[in-house]
Design a binder for these strands. Sequence first.
DNA 1: CCTTGACCTAAAGTTAGGTTTAGCAATTAC
DNA 2: GTAATTGCTAAACCTAACTTTAGGTCAAGG
Lengths: 150, 150
Amino acid sequence: MAKDGLSIGDLAERTGLAVSAIRYYEAQGLIDPWRNAGGQRRFERADIRRLSFVMIAQQFGFTLPQIRAELDLLPKGRVPTKADWARISSGFRAALDARIDTLVRMSDTLDSCIGCGCLSLDSCALYNPGDRAREKGTGPRYLMGDRPAD
Amino acid sequence: MAKDGLSIGDLAERTGLAVSAIRYYEAQGLIDPWRNAGGQRRFERADIRRLSFVMIAQQFGFTLPQIRAELDLLPKGRVPTKADWARISSGFRAALDARIDTLVRMSDTLDSCIGCGCLSLDSCALYNPGDRAREKGTGPRYLMGDRPAD
DNA sequence: CCTTGACCTAAAGTTAGGTTTAGCAATTAC
DNA sequence: GTAATTGCTAAACCTAACTTTAGGTCAAGG
């Protein structure tokens, strides 16, 4: 049954992912199964690892293209070494730390604003407290003045 | 010009939001302008505050329905008091702290995993490190076993 | 052999938070 | 008074990460 590779259903069961998600990941270039005589996908056992990695990286907030870039650094078909994971983990760590940092700064700012209630667009420190948000909206999102009066 | 209320363009200029966004917020029930004789929207000056609040809350990661719920606690038309902001800020603070907590736990887990590289679905602590992710996907996303072998 | 269940593709649907477009009405500026 | 702005609505479009559907094929069990 797993002699000539895992079926997509097997892989779904092993990873907990939906079959449709696995097909989608293939379309995004995250995995690259071969096909059997009947045209069905067959996966290597190492793909379980690969998808596990995808799931974890997603929890760390990476997008699929970013994850793909990370995976592309692992030579296709090679089982990742500890060194590979250590390198990747460092990347995760940096991303995580940056996010924590942003939130802590927001939190600090909030502390200094509680009880103020001004919400003035030009004087309230709550605007643009970090960097994480609003980088994908199309509009310019410039900030203009707002008089404290009223 | 602002005698009988602000036009949507005025409000857009004062808040930095796109006109289309303001209309969208109205559709979501975040603001409730009246109409002038010609059918155009007219806003109170307090709506600048209201939208400022929306923008800040979004930076804190709240969804529009959540923000609406928060705003609904402020009696319509009443200018929010310091007590209102203090209460809301506390809510922000709790949400922020929870997010920071989750990230810190992920970070700690990651530390303990660097150099391990197992990524085993049943033994690696990197799965479900927190709570923030994956609560909106349709599928059950259950996690099944994965033998360390291979 | 035949049925059932797993698989295939392509395309459309989903959610959030908006933006863009089309076609038309109201306001404002000169 | 008239042209340029600004505003109006409804509907379509956008991204990310998938799921669902439709219509058809493959594989395994009895």
